[in-house]
Design a protein around this nucleic acid. Structure first.
Lengths: 250, 250
DNA sequence: GCCTAGGTCCCGTGG
DNA sequence: CCACGGGGCCTAGGC
């Protein structure tokens, strides 16, 4: 069976279904009243409450409360999960090596256990990333300024990796730091770090922050440091049939 | 009912259960073969495949493939979800305002639809954060160095917010940048930004990066910039009954 | 709302 | 394995 679900399962049914799910490399889904303990890079405790538990065949382990996009506790891919019944208590335990981390869920009551032997061969096709900004600039350098010549993408330098490295029409070295969204102080610091590293070995180096907009603080720091800004919004390329927007927004 | 689940539901059952879940402010969980379209800050498409869909009463919307900790597509809290049947097709649609983002799921086949009216009044108690490193330093300033006096936490300065600001026994201003994990180039740039801002208005300013360890690049840059490093690991405080570790690791 | 920075960030990529 | 930086980052805390 590709999918199985049991409401209010007994301990035996939980063990049975869980093991069958594991052997099928299925995604396990549990609605439970539970407590959660985590110890690893940090350490946490979560008292009794109702949560949704998702365990994937790659070892990913997610515990979701009824709010927020983020799981309240989790384990990343590569972790090993196990189910243990002892002394009338039932535990899910997930262990990760390197760094060693343990996630322990005490299942106080299981409302539903289900699994899904999911088949999926598709990968996400996403557009509008920083990488596409770089492509756009290489295709059309005048978006930065007249006479700009981009030379490298993702170029490693002394203290970091520059998004785009090129020269302007005067022959100055130009470093671009690209941001797909509004650029902040962090982005300016990053650009400054690259510019200073290049200035150790070259005469004239310009730094340009390329983004759709700037935060107020970023603007202040950028100006103080003599760095520049060029407005550019990441392109959304047509990855699919034309007219997708229409069906989406209809 | 707190929980409901239906295997291989008809269109009517899907609509029925989905609406009941919404009215109960339950978490909706769907195992489906589906396609996904997203348009907003970026834009994406995901071809047909089996996924787990989780919709929370706060508007959070997650689509999980069988691998990775991260949802392949999602909508954050505050989004509005709806179910629409048209022309023998069934769609889940979630809309977010500000920024405007649309997530559309075409349900090609629903293997299981379930909901869970979760009750949860507990919040995560977590220890081992950067904030606790700051507390520790205020309690025991000699962890930084003999004679160090911490004065401010999260102190806003010209270009950013300093983790800890204090003075050393010579009266120099000392800026601490804390990292709960291995500190990288970014951390050094951040510290450098604060130190340079403070040096505009004060004579002697020291910058100390406080972390359990440093990346190789961070060490190089730190030394070149004349900044300092103090090794400190974030404390895991006993937030619960003593001896938790024992049960966890047994 | 904007800004700033942390996160058990996760994740991909390159050395 | 480490290092580096992006992300539709998300989330929290100030203002």
């Amino acid at each position: 069976m590709k999918v199985e679900a049991k409401l209010n399962p007994t301990y035996e049914e939980i063990v049975d279904i869980f093991n069958r799910a594991l052997s099928k490399e299925a995604i396990v889904n549990i609605f439970a009243h539970c407590r959660v303990f985590y110890d690893g890079r940090a350490k946490s405790e979560l008292g009794p409450g109702d949560r949704v538990i998702l365990i994937k065949p790659d070892g990913s382990f997610l515990i979701h409360q009824k709010e927020k996009r983020e799981p309240v506790n989790w384990q990343p891919p590569g972790s090993s999960v196990g189910l243990e019944v002892k002394e009338d208590k039932i535990f899910l335990r997930s262990i990760r090596r390197k760094p060693r981390e343990i996630l322990e869920v005490e299942l106080l009551n299981v409302y539903l256990i289900s699994y899904f032997q999911a088949e999926d061969y598709e990968e996400l096709a996403l557009t509008g990333s920083e990488a596409e900004m770089a492509d756009l600039i290489f295709e059309n350098p005048s978006l930065i300024e007249d006479g700009f010549k981009p030379l490298f993408k993702e170029k490693p330098i002394k203290h970091g990796i520059v998004d785009v490295l090129g020269v302007d029409k005067e022959g100055n070295i130009v470093i671009l730091e690209l941001k797909r969204r509004r650029a902040d102080l962090h982005a300016v610091s990053q650009l400054k770090r690259y510019v200073e590293a290049m200035r150790e070995e070259h005469e004239k180096v310009r730094g340009i922050l390329v983004a759709p907009s700037l935060t107020s603080g970023a603007k202040k720091l950028l100006e103080k440091e003599g760095l520049e800004f060029r407005k550019l919004t990441p392109p959304k390329r047509g990855k699919s049939k034309r007219g997708r927007q229409k069906t989406l927004f209809d």
